[in-house]
Simulated assay, not measured.
Amino acid sequence: MVPSEEGILTNLRRGALEYCVLASLRGGASYGRDIARQLSTDGVLMSGEGTLYPLLARLRKSGLVETHWQESASGPPRRYYALTGEGERALEVFIRVWSPFRSAVDSSLGEGEQ
Rank of each mutant, 00 (worst) to 15 (best):
residue 69 W to P: 01
residue 63 G to H: 03
residue 29 A to M: 07
residue 68 H to E: 10
residue 84 T to R: 00
residue 90 A to P: 01
residue 105 V to M: 09
residue 95 I to N: 00
residue 3 P to D: 08
residue 97 V to I: 11
residue 20 C to Y: 15
residue 83 L to C: 09
residue 19 Y to V: 04
residue 47 S to T: 15
residue 3 P to T: 01
residue 102 R to Q: 12
residue 80 Y to K: 12
residue 17 L to M: 08
residue 102 R to H: 11
residue 45 L to S: 04
residue 80 Y to D: 08
residue 107 S to M: 12
residue 82 A to F: 02
residue 114 Q to V: 15
residue 111 E to A: 15
residue 62 S to T: 11
residue 46 M to K: 02
residue 110 G to W: 05
residue 57 A to S: 06
residue 67 T to E: 05
residue 2 V to K: 13
residue 80 Y to L: 11
residue 1 M to G: 13
residue 103 S to I: 13
residue 99 S to K: 15
residue 36 A to I: 10
residue 25 L to T: 07
residue 99 S to N: 14
residue 46 M to T: 06
residue 68 H to Y: 08
residue 112 G to T: 13
residue 44 V to Y: 06
residue 56 L to G: 03
residue 15 G to S: 02
residue 82 A to C: 07
residue 79 R to D: 04
residue 47 S to V: 10
residue 25 L to N: 03
residue 113 E to G: 10
residue 47 S to K: 10
residue 91 L to T: 05
residue 54 P to D: 01
residue 28 G to C: 02
residue 19 Y to K: 06
residue 98 W to R: 14
residue 94 F to W: 11
residue 60 R to N: 10
residue 59 L to Y: 05
residue 9 L to Q: 05
residue 35 I to R: 01
residue 12 L to N: 10
residue 48 G to L: 07
residue 109 L to H: 11
residue 30 S to N: 10
residue 5 E to H: 11
residue 80 Y to S: 01
residue 110 G to S: 06
residue 101 F to S: 13
residue 95 I to F: 01
residue 50 G to C: 07
residue 102 R to F: 12
residue 65 V to H: 08
residue 105 V to P: 09
residue 1 M to C: 11
residue 65 V to R: 05
residue 75 G to M: 01
residue 100 P to T: 11
residue 67 T to N: 07
residue 104 A to P: 08
residue 57 A to I: 07
residue 36 A to C: 13
residue 17 L to W: 02
residue 33 R to A: 12
residue 63 G to R: 05
residue 110 G to I: 05
residue 76 P to L: 11
residue 12 L to M: 12
residue 101 F to P: 04
residue 8 I to P: 05
residue 105 V to W: 12
residue 23 A to I: 03
residue 22 L to K: 00
residue 18 E to M: 07
residue 20 C to M: 10
residue 82 A to T: 01
residue 24 S to W: 02
residue 48 G to N: 15
residue 77 P to D: 05
residue 80 Y to H: 11
residue 51 T to G: 08
residue 28 G to A: 09
residue 55 L to T: 00
residue 73 A to K: 11
residue 69 W to L: 03
residue 76 P to M: 11
residue 7 G to Y: 13
residue 75 G to Q: 06
residue 11 N to E: 15
residue 9 L to V: 08
residue 93 V to E: 10
residue 49 E to I: 12
residue 78 R to H: 07
residue 38 Q to S: 12
residue 50 G to Y: 04
residue 114 Q to T: 14
residue 49 E to W: 01
residue 7 G to R: 14
residue 29 A to Q: 03
residue 81 Y to T: 02
residue 9 L to K: 14
residue 67 T to H: 01
residue 83 L to S: 02
residue 76 P to F: 09
residue 47 S to P: 00
residue 24 S to R: 02
residue 59 L to V: 07
residue 68 H to W: 04
residue 74 S to Y: 12
residue 22 L to G: 04
residue 11 N to F: 13
residue 108 S to R: 15
residue 5 E to G: 10
residue 27 G to T: 14
residue 40 S to R: 05
residue 67 T to V: 00
residue 52 L to F: 05
residue 42 D to Q: 06
residue 98 W to T: 12
